[in-house]
């Protein structure tokens, strides 16, 4: 009866060949990879030094004002400001800025790549059927599987961290851009076309504005997914709040882990609320 339970044959995949391919790719394309590393490093450095240049109290005030403007409640503004202040008060401000610069860079890259891809696959079913399984793979592939190749290609530190974060976080912006545009009422699009709009004009002037709320929800999700990668990214040497969490967890220092973990949560909540509020404002305008 064994044959009922056993596979009839076993394929031997030559995994060593894949290892060698990745590594020789890294060696042979050093010039391009170095160019990408330098570019990303430059981007990250400039984001970080800009954030670092702003005195802490200005950021706290900005968060207060944004919170107030969004909800029209002074209380909300104060809560947001106190939350941000408390990150600095426990001495995690510099680490938060490092984390924030990685998140900002990843979200910016996700938006710049993801939005056009989303628009493209909303217009073309063929492209959609190719891209969607890729998106599924990117979302479900265990992170460590591409983390280590990212290290082989880009070294350790914040550059591969941004790469890995982007792979994980770009998915919602693509998906929701696609969904938002496809959900726009056919008749509205037909109307625009009957007034002589070209396909591009209908897209830019009618479909994208109509889909704006959904696209922004995608951006918000992208932001949250990027925050979720913070600790994982520190496993390849990205310093910041994630590294602090990693160190405390590795030492079984529960208290220290809780403090730095809470700082991650606060940062995530602030980014979430502020970006969501911004979407609502835009919706009301529209």
């Amino acid at each position: 009866m064994n044959w009922l339970y056993q596979f009839p044959f076993k394929l031997n995949i030559d995994t060593a060949a894949i290892d060698d391919a990745v590594r020789s790719f890294a060696v042979n394309n050093e010039a391009i990879l170095q160019f990408m590393r330098r570019g990303l490093n430059g981007l990250l450095s400039s984001i970080h030094s800009t954030l670092d240049f702003i005195p802490w109290w200005i950021l706290v005030i900005v968060v207060f004002v944004l919170g107030f403007l969004q909800t029209k409640k002074i209380k909300t503004g104060i809560v947001y400001a106190v939350m941000l202040f408390s990150i600095g008060a426990v001495g995690l401000w510099p680490l938060m800025l490092l984390t924030l610069s990685i998140v900002i860079a990843s979200v910016a890259i996700s938006l710049l790549l993801g939005f056009p891809i989303g628009v493209l696959i909303s217009m073309n079913d063929r492209a959609s059927s190719i891209v969607r399984p890729i998106l599924d793979t990117m979302q479900t592939m265990p992170v460590f599987v591409y983390l280590i190749p990212a290290v082989l290609l880009f070294g350790l530190g914040r550059v591969p961290a941004v790469m890995a974060t982007t792979i994980y976080a770009i998915v919602p912006i693509v998906r929701l851009t696609n969904l938002g545009i496809r959900q726009v009422n056919e008749e509205v699009v037909e109307a625009a076309k009957s007034f002589g709009s070209t396909r591009i004009q209908a897209m830019v002037k009618v479909q994208i504005p109509q889909a704006f709320a959904t696209i922004m929800a995608g951006l918000n999700q992208t932001l949250m997914m990027a925050m979720a990668m913070v600790v994982t990214a520190s496993m390849i040497g990205a310093s910041g709040l994630g590294m602090e969490v990693l160190i405390s967890v590795n030492r079984v220092e529960v208290g220290r882990g809780l403090v730095s973990g809470t700082a991650v949560v606060i940062l995530a909540i602030l980014l979430d609320r502020l970006s969501q509020g911004w979407v609502k404002d835009k919706e009301e305008e529209a």
């Binding site: 590594r23 390849i236 990693l246």
Partner: peptide, 17 residues
């Protein structure tokens, strides 16, 4: 700080290659 021993190994191998 390399974050994990797998990452440290990958960094050394990649530099060595």
């Amino acid at each position: 700080r390399p974050g994990s021993d797998a990452a440290l190994s990958a960094a050394i191998i990649s530099a060595y290659d």
